[in-house]
């Protein structure tokens, strides 16, 4: 199972006046964890919608596992790329959470026992096992969003795209999301997410694409991408370690505290704490 995503000189115009993407070229390899960030209207959603044919290139092309997305229907690409919409209202329709989560893998034609196992795994991963018989519309919006995620996880696709999964989510759901990303990556799946949450971004993703006004202006590790940004918009631990003069950028609280412990022990008196990783 390899579904590398190759984006070649991708341009997308909404109409004659509005250009959403301008000449994007990049490759996402199978198993990468990629966050797509940028201001409102930068083209984040439009970019990721090209990965399963929801959006079609105006010029340039997008290849998923060698398939040109322009030549395949959305439903054909669904076996390669699972896509979680930003608004769960767009995708939830069944009377129970379990039925909702079953819908995708059934459409993909998996055997019944495989479907059952995938549904159970997706519900467990999102902490919804106890709500399997609940009506999705009786759940709080934050939980509905998790149902939408479970319904895509159950399809067990090589690539999973999450469009703004952190929007409006509480700390419980963010922990679930982190675990989901970790689990997918552990099983060799590609995870791509758009987000405004910079802390969530550096904690869970090892590559960041920064879009501004439809252009890809940075593409690299979090430490490479978050450099001369406005300090207000830096991930918190990046800003803090930068202020403390560290040479490295911890992405998690654990890493920060480990660096603190190591740095304290190692730092010569009078010198700023530094740590090379």
């Amino acid at each position: 199972m390899r579904a590398d995503i190759r984006v070649e000189s991708l341009t997308h115009d909404y109409d004659a006046q509005v250009t959403a993407l301008r000449g994007i070229t990049t490759t996402v390899r199978q198993g990468e964890r990629v966050a797509v960030i940028g201001p409102n209207g930068a083209g984040k959603t439009t970019l990721v919608q090209h990965f399963n044919g929801l959006a079609r290139p105006t010029s340039g092309r997008v290849l998923v596992g060698g398939m040109d997305t322009a030549e395949h229907s959305i439903s054909a690409l669904a076996a390669e790329v699972g896509f979680v919409f930003q608004n769960p209202a767009d995708q939830l329709h069944a009377r129970t959470v379990a039925a909702e989560v079953r819908f995708g893998p059934r459409n993909l034609g998996h055997a019944d026992d495989v479907v059952a196992a995938q549904v159970a795994a997706a519900l467990a991963a999102t902490g919804l096992t106890g709500l399997a018989d609940a009506h999705p519309y009786h759940l709080a919006p934050a939980q509905r969003k998790l149902v939408a995620i479970a319904s895509v996880l159950a399809m067990d696709t090589p690539v999973v795209v999450l469009d703004e999964p952190t929007t409006g989510q509480d700390a419980f759901a963010l922990d679930v999301l982190s675990a989901v990303v970790e689990d997918l990556a552990g099983r060799g799946r590609t995870v791509i997410a758009t987000t405004h949450d910079m802390d969530f971004c550096v904690e869970n993703f090892d590559r960041v694409l920064l879009l501004t006004d439809g252009e890809l202006i940075a593409d690299g590790t979090p430490a490479e991408v978050f450099t001369d940004t406005d300090p207000q918009r830096l991930p918190q631990l990046f800003r803090l370690s930068g202020e403390l003069g560290w040479g490295s950028r911890p992405t998690t609280v654990d890493e920060f505290v480990a660096g603190l412990a190591a740095g304290r022990a190692a730092a010569p008196p009078g010198c700023p704490v530094s740590l090379e990783s």
Partner: peptide, 18 residues
Amino acid sequence: TRARNVLRAQQARGLDTT
């Protein structure tokens, strides 16, 4: 517009509408 989104969301979950 919303109806279009709904249709595409289901297609993205493998719903074949041909």
